[in-house]
């Protein structure tokens, strides 16, 4: 405020004429103002009332204090407007809170990242396990792989990319099936992608059947042993619907079915014989 005062003093030409030097006029103004403040404080701070009136209000205030204390109101939480600690303290408290928030947030994000690593790792496991299963299957029945149907070559190069896209494609397929092949019901982009992936609109059905079959591991092992791809598809399809409680499966239960399929994939890779069963 002192600098302000100096500025005002400098702006005020009259004072400067009387007192040479901005600082001199500044201190004079300060003294003047301080005197006025003191005067006002003296006159206004203790207006009229008197001690009797004060003690009346005091009694009331103390009674209210006692009531609040005895009812436990004084244990209430401090709100922001009740925090009148020094700016520095408050800032320190705030920065502590900010630090904690950042720490918690980074932990949470870190957790997500770790979880993501886990997901990628597990799907790698699946795709790593897959060739062995496939190899053994094709070794057992040499013709099986060749008869796997038109969609199979498309899925063979797609296999390395499977971890990223398999779920999407499967989801699109389910949506496609649900929509019954009618265009509007499905989101246009997703539909276009699915058609592109299948290599033509009329191929979508077959492609989807294949994707569903490969997404659920029993179908994968079954495909190797069964000579006709059609039955493999049908089998996979039926298994897929068996996994969900109702025939008219909602999205939620389909999602569960997918998760179950992944889970099976891991366990199934360990014991491929289970897939060959009924």
């Amino acid at each position: 405020m002192g600098e302000r005062q100096d500025d005002r003093g400098a702006a005020d030409g009259r004072r400067r004429c009387v007192h040479p030097g901005a600082t001199a006029s500044g201190t004079a103004g300060t003294a003047d103002r301080a005197g006025l403040e003191e005067l006002l404080a003296l006159v206004l701070r203790d207006p009229g009332g008197g001690p009797v009136d004060g003690s009346e209000g005091e009694k009331r205030a103390v009674a209210a204090f006692r009531a609040a204390r005895d009812t436990g109101a004084h244990r209430a939480r401090t709100r922001r407007r009740d925090d009148w600690r020094q700016q520095r303290q408050r800032r320190a408290a705030r920065s502590l809170r900010a630090t904690l928030t950042v720490a918690v947030a980074s932990l949470a994000l870190g957790g997500v990242a770790v979880a993501a690593i886990g997901t990628v790792g597990s799907s790698d496991d699946v795709s790593a396990a897959r060739p062995t299963v496939r190899a053994s299957a094709s070794a057992a029945a040499p013709g099986g792989h060749a008869t796997a149907g038109p969609a199979d070559p498309a899925s063979a190069p797609a296999l390395p990319a499977r971890p990223a896209t398999a779920k999407d494609t499967a989801a699109r397929c389910r949506a496609y099936e649900k929509a019954g092949g009618k265009g509007r019901a499905m989101e246009a982009t997703a539909r276009q992608r699915l058609i592109a992936a299948a290599g033509g609109e009329d191929q979508v059905g077959a492609y989807c059947a294949h994707v569903t079959a490969t997404a659920s591991p029993p179908g994968r092992t079954a495909r190797g042993t069964t000579p006709a791809p059609g039955t493999a598809r049908a089998k996979a399809r039926s298994e897929g619907t068996d996994g969900s409680p109702g025939a008219a499966a909602s999205n939620g239960t389909q999602g569960k079915g997918q998760d179950g399929g992944q889970g099976n994939g891991q366990s199934d890779a360990a014991k491929p014989g289970g897939g060959k069963g009924p």
Partner: peptide, 18 residues
């Protein structure tokens, strides 16, 4: 003062803050 007496527990700060 009734409010001050009631909410005193919430307050944090020194004399100037009060």
């Amino acid at each position: 003062w009734l409010e001050i007496a009631r909410d005193l527990g919430r307050f944090q700060g020194d004399g100037a803050g009060f």
